[in-house]
Design a protein around this nucleic acid. Sequence first.
DNA 1: ACCATAGCACTAACGGTTAGCTTTTAAAAA
DNA 2: TTTTTAAAAGCTAACCGTTAGTGCTATGGT
Lengths: 201, 201
Amino acid sequence: MTVPPGRRERKKAATRRKIADAALRLFLERGYEAVGIRDVAAEADVAVTTVFSHFASKEALVFEQDEDFGQRLLRAVTDRAPHEPLIPALRDRIGALVRHCTTDAAAPIQRMIDASPALREYEEAARLRHAESLATAIAADPDRPRTTTACRTIARFVVDAYALARDAADPEAAVEEIFRMIEAAWEVTRPATHPTDPVGS
Amino acid sequence: MTVPPGRRERKKAATRRKIADAALRLFLERGYEAVGIRDVAAEADVAVTTVFSHFASKEALVFEQDEDFGQRLLRAVTDRAPHEPLIPALRDRIGALVRHCTTDAAAPIQRMIDASPALREYEEAARLRHAESLATAIAADPDRPRTTTACRTIARFVVDAYALARDAADPEAAVEEIFRMIEAAWEVTRPATHPTDPVGS
DNA sequence: ACCATAGCACTAACGGTTAGCTTTTAAAAA
DNA sequence: TTTTTAAAAGCTAACCGTTAGTGCTATGGT
């Protein structure tokens, strides 16, 4: 309840980071599947139940930092200047996220994820959730109104773009190419307007 | 090696069906999560290991028949008449699949899947695999050539359409709406051609 | 100083999944 | 036919992620 960050919360955060660091170290050392939760707990010198009180699952240990993906995507929609077009804003944000994940020192982590079906599935499931919240943000946008289906569809296309671009040979070019497609898909959902009424009803 | 379907394979198929039937019966009776693999094995009167020698996972027991989803989608691309446009063929096929899953007597099964996060994740992961094979089929199509990225993107959009339409209030209308978007996205990937050269290079 | 509570530990277990090994039984070889 | 092989199924026991139950300790509010 108090404003100052108490010692308790600092300790809790420290334990959390200790666990995450130990886990990542072991995963990169021996491979994700070869390391058990019990190994992680021992390395971090905590109990198994403590691990699960900080992380919902073994996979969540890997995506600890990556959790703000959805937040960033949402802000690309909600925090943009008035009348700034939606799709280019999303394209730029996705481009930045892709760059962050391909050029960063996150290369070994990326290789680890690609090597584990369980991790890939987890990431994809997380993306689905992000698509859901992105869809509601788009639907609430003061832009020209679209149907619920159109918003959910575009949201899904956008998160697909991230996954597709990352796997492409040239991720940056792929973002451009995919977003040309998304832009076209978004355009055809514009409610009909008279040519003399370009602002809409 | 012999041509007639040997007794062995018949018995094996019988065991498989016995297991799948028992599993579905129990799942619908008590709920998916409330039924253990050991319960299924007992109901089918087989050993637990036998269940896993026929099905890769507990979730696979539910999607036993649904495995031809990918096949049907592929045939929509490969088996269509020459010069029949690609996207409408896919739209019709997706529409048929959606209808099959919403109007059929598969309603209780659908409710069961919706109620279990594990099953929804499994289905989504399966769709990703379908998208991959669909992408290669589209890339190999004698249609106007597109980039690998464009093919993979459209494949993903198409399988998204299935998931999105099923969850929509009016699935049939949603298919139409989403495929108008997909059609537009596909159009902008057409390689540049002279207006006097409509067949392409 | 005192107490409510959050954080953590420990044990034990559950449920999906797999490994190792034996038994049955259909199919092929002799 | 008899013998051999190998697939199919069984049993036991375990691994691994995850959770419930319980209690201890230390922190923070009063």
